Amino acid sequence: KKEGHWDCSICLVRNEPTVSRCIACQNTKS
């Protein structure tokens, strides 16, 4: 897992550190 990346708590997609919403389901970063 790269530094700063985060996994969506709903759909588990891994997102870039620069985005505050999931690219797949638009869930906000927790």
Results as ranks from 00 to 15, higher is better:
1 K>Y: 00
1 K>C: 15
1 K>T: 15
2 K>L: 04
2 K>R: 11
3 E>F: 15
3 E>I: 09
3 E>N: 06
3 E>K: 15
3 E>V: 01
4 G>L: 15
4 G>W: 01
6 W>L: 06
6 W>Y: 01
6 W>K: 04
7 D>V: 07
7 D>F: 07
10 I>W: 07
10 I>L: 05
11 C>E: 12
11 C>L: 00
12 L>F: 15
12 L>V: 04
13 V>W: 06
13 V>D: 03
13 V>G: 14
13 V>Q: 07
13 V>Y: 03
13 V>K: 10
13 V>S: 10
13 V>H: 14
14 R>G: 10
14 R>D: 07
14 R>A: 12
14 R>L: 14
14 R>F: 03
14 R>S: 15
14 R>W: 06
14 R>P: 14
15 N>W: 01
15 N>V: 00
15 N>A: 00
15 N>M: 07
15 N>Y: 02
15 N>F: 00
15 N>C: 01
15 N>I: 04
15 N>L: 00
15 N>T: 03
15 N>R: 01
16 E>Y: 03
16 E>G: 15
16 E>N: 09
16 E>K: 01
16 E>D: 05
16 E>A: 03
16 E>W: 04
16 E>R: 02
17 P>R: 02
17 P>G: 04
17 P>N: 14
17 P>T: 06
17 P>H: 08
17 P>F: 05
17 P>E: 08
18 T>W: 05
18 T>R: 03
18 T>C: 00
18 T>I: 11
18 T>A: 03
18 T>L: 08
18 T>V: 02
19 V>P: 01
19 V>Q: 12
19 V>L: 07
19 V>G: 05
19 V>S: 11
19 V>D: 05
19 V>T: 12
19 V>N: 08
19 V>K: 08
19 V>A: 10
19 V>R: 11
20 S>D: 14
20 S>K: 04
20 S>L: 13
20 S>M: 06
20 S>A: 13
20 S>G: 06
20 S>T: 11
20 S>V: 12
20 S>Y: 03
20 S>N: 11
21 R>G: 05
21 R>M: 10
21 R>I: 15
21 R>C: 10
21 R>L: 04
21 R>V: 09
22 C>P: 03
22 C>S: 02
22 C>Q: 02
22 C>Y: 00
22 C>W: 00
22 C>E: 03
22 C>G: 05
22 C>I: 00
22 C>H: 04
22 C>K: 02
22 C>T: 04
23 I>F: 11
23 I>D: 05
23 I>A: 15
23 I>C: 14
23 I>R: 11
23 I>H: 12
23 I>L: 10
23 I>Y: 08
23 I>T: 15
23 I>M: 13
23 I>W: 06
23 I>G: 11
24 A>V: 10
24 A>K: 11
24 A>I: 09
24 A>M: 04
24 A>G: 11
25 C>G: 01
25 C>F: 00
25 C>T: 00
25 C>E: 04
25 C>V: 05
25 C>I: 01
25 C>A: 03
25 C>Q: 11
25 C>S: 01
26 Q>W: 05
26 Q>V: 01
26 Q>F: 08
26 Q>D: 13
26 Q>L: 06
26 Q>H: 07
26 Q>P: 04
26 Q>C: 08
26 Q>M: 07
27 N>H: 12
27 N>K: 11
27 N>Y: 10
27 N>E: 08
27 N>Q: 01
27 N>M: 13
27 N>A: 09
27 N>R: 06
27 N>D: 13
27 N>I: 09
27 N>T: 13
28 T>Y: 00
28 T>Q: 09
28 T>N: 09
28 T>L: 10
28 T>D: 15
28 T>I: 11
28 T>K: 03
28 T>S: 09
28 T>V: 11
28 T>R: 07
29 K>R: 07
29 K>V: 07
29 K>G: 14
29 K>S: 11
29 K>E: 15
29 K>Q: 13
29 K>H: 08
29 K>I: 03
29 K>C: 12
29 K>A: 11
30 S>T: 10
30 S>Y: 06
30 S>N: 10
30 S>L: 05
